[in-house]
Amino acid sequence: MTAYIIGISIALVLFIIIGVIAGRSVRDTNDYYVAGRRAPIILIVGSLIASFLSTGAFLGDTGEVYAGFFMGIVIVGILQASGYVYGANLFGKYIRRAQVNTVPEYFAKRFSSKRLRILASVTLIFAVTAYMLSTMQGVSTLMTVITGLDYKWCVIIAWLSFTIFTVYSGSKGVLITDTIMFLIFLVAALTGIPYIVKAAGGWSEAINALAQSTTRPGIIAWTNNLDYMYPTGGQNLLWAIVYGIVWAIVVMVSPWQTSRYLMAKDEHTVQRSSIWASIGVVIVTTALYFSSVFIYKINPYITDSSTNLIWAAMNVMPMIIGVVLLTGILSAGVSSASTFLSLIGSTLTNDILVNKKTDSPKKNLRISRIGMGVVGVIVLVLAFFNPPQIFWIMYFGGTVIASAWGVVAITSVWSKKMSESGAFWGMLFGFIGCVIPKTYSALSGITLPIYLDPFFIGIVMSVIGILVGNKVKKVSITAIAEYEKLHVRPESEKDPQNDRITYRLMYIYIIFGILLGLFFVIAYALPYMKAISK
């Protein structure tokens, strides 16, 4: 136990030190909010993945796999990862081109609208706070399990581990620490697997046993275990496809993903990062999901399924690898929390307290840090006292932002006819359209059919809002001018050699697709089919 505590403590202290050192070069709000817009591919990819994968993926998703929902979660993982490529090319590249500090500022600039800026900021703060609190809860629970410390103390330690450098260094610190944390959990996910496979009796033996499992029948079948969620394979498959699409849209437009593109050194970096981030997410999640299903083969008696990776780290792996895995899980949570805090703080100071800006870069930087600090303290109070109302905020999770922003974000780039009124009402309707049915569903205890998921109701409402808004108030000349400006490629981007390199990544992605398909056919489908034909 001591080794685990020492390992994790060293990691947390290192994150703070590195994050604070990165902050010493922060000179103005441009550095603070968007890391000076000079970040290379490695930092963008690291931050994209680290912000996306949190304790939700490492503990939540792996828990569902362990509980019998392997293929369902794999399908969601595959579909969501492709969202990077669609998001970067349909939205990310263009918000980078708009040269803004935050995504709400992009909406405001695109439509010359103060009310849209406020609405985007409020929806962002609502959704990101929800997501952040659940991440903090995950990190604190993990720390409690590992250290045996009281939960409240773990909340404070977890909070300190990301708040100090986020408040001081802003995006510069977050980009660097995110990338380090991503590398840690990538190594953790990959190095743990061989020990898990070995303990499960080897790859073929594990697939064979799981295919014929009588304690959790169907755990690796396409139908999934029919006692877990829906009673038929078709319903489970539909659920997985629906949620895969929902999370792909989250990846495409959510502020904790797209804001990373604002920091990229050029548009080539945005596009290339999307390919590597997509590949990275698939590698990490696939490794995790196979690990968890194999852990079921090793020990099917873990009561709290979401702790299966923690159990494996402490009981299956050599101590040093176990320490790396636990540090990796913790890093995934801390890295997301730091991005979330920096997003909320940036939005508050850049978009809501916009009038507080002065002519002095130093003063502006100080105001931004104070704003971020205040947000940090509020988050600590919420997480520490965990009032019952917080459950409600957390319940909304990350999908609500995709419901509110999804259609508006993409059409803001691709529709010349989109007016300020269309964007505003589209965002508002999308938000309300998701929140109300979700609240109703939770209060009444009624589970809505898959096709009536609040996310999709929100999307439909958003489209209605856009259509009505565009009818009420036609597009202005300024909005058309902004649209046209968005589609003019900056001279600095025009470089045939760079174009060739960016284009060539398409072939790498195709090869990745072929290899992934082959991996699943050879390592999963064929041995599975052989096992069930016995």
Binding site: I75, I78, V85, A221, V488, M506, G513, A525
Partner: peptide
Amino acid sequence: MELVLSIAFGAWFIIAAIFYGYMVRRGEKE
């Protein structure tokens, strides 16, 4: 079905790759 899904996983990324290539070429003409 397990085999079909495995192949579909690969195909899904190939479709995304083609989209990426198209968008990169399109962007060069902006």
